[in-house]
């Protein structure tokens, strides 16, 4: 039935994706013919040198940018514009600073024209899950960095998306908050069975979170290598200093260096 279907084909398919920019009559190749399959429930991290085009890639997958060629298929359907089935969490979060925490979280729900009780229920539940209880009437600027992250996540997750896309979401956080957020997102992904595609330049982050790590070359970005991380979820914080972790990280680091 439905459950078999969703596991029979990749949930997210990136097929021969290329993105070129026309910059002052010069053609700039940013992403060159990338193909990638993401399966239901997977956590995939995309890493690569700065400026390689990974941000462009994930923005295009989310429908924020037009593709020069290729396709992005979500559940078999082509992704052409930003839509709630694959929300993108940006590095700058894009929180609606003129709205309270509550209004931010319920925004997408209101777009779905749900009953008020339903909206209340779902929103409260997710605020509880991410730990923003009691902050409903606050504005984003009144929250700490980690809390803003949680708000951005909650805002997207209330929609029950099939795939969660993230572009270096934790890059602006201090180390401790960052690690805490990594554990948070890992826990969330694991408990909801959500599929995640995350771009990061932080190798520790990628190895800690991912089932598979996709390494990109320098611009124009191509898939260089894919590294598997077979440690089961949920992963304890101590995994960061385990033998397996260090081995995988070394592999990725060496590969990127060459």
């Amino acid at each position: 039935m439905k459950k078999d279907d969703i596991n029979a084909h990749p949930l997210l398919e990136i097929k021969n994706l290329s993105i070129n920019y026309n910059f002052n009559e010069e053609r700039l190749e940013v992403v060159n013919n990338i193909s990638l399959e993401v399966w239901n429930g997977e956590f995939v991290c995309v890493v690569g040198p700065n400026g390689c085009g990974k941000t462009t890639l994930v923005h295009a997958v989310a429908g924020f940018l037009p593709l020069t060629s290729g396709q992005v298929l979500l559940g078999g359907k082509e992704v052409l514009t930003p839509n709630p089935n694959c929300p993108l969490i940006l590095q700058n979060l894009g929180l609606f600073y003129w709205m309270t925490v509550w209004d931010n979280v319920t925004f997408g729900l209101r777009a779905m024209n749900l009953e008020t009780e339903e909206i209340d229920r779902i929103a409260k539940r997710w605020l509880d899950i991410v730990g923003l209880n009691g902050f409903e009437k606050r504005y984003p600027f009144e929250l700490s960095g980690g809390m803003r992250q949680k708000l951005a996540l909650a805002r997207a997750l209330v929609l029950g998306p099939k795939v969660l896309l993230m572009d270096e979401p934790f890059a602006n956080l201090d180390m401790q908050t960052r690690e805490s957020m990594q554990e948070e997102i890992s826990r969330l992904a694991d408990s909801t069975g959500m599929t995640v595609l995350m771009v990061t330049h932080n190798l520790d982050e990628a190895v800690f979170l991912a089932d598979r790590i996709v390494l990109l070359t320098e611009r124009p970005a191509r898939v260089k290598e894919i590294v598997h991380v077979s440690t089961a979820h949920p992963r304890s914080p101590e995994f960061r200093v385990s033998q397996e972790f260090l081995e995988i990280k070394s592999r990725v680091w060496m590969s990127l260096k060459n």
Partner: peptide
């Protein structure tokens, strides 16, 4: 970006 995010959220 805010317009895109709005669309992103449906």
């Amino acid at each position: 970006v805010y317009l895109n995010i709005g669309k992103n959220l449906g």
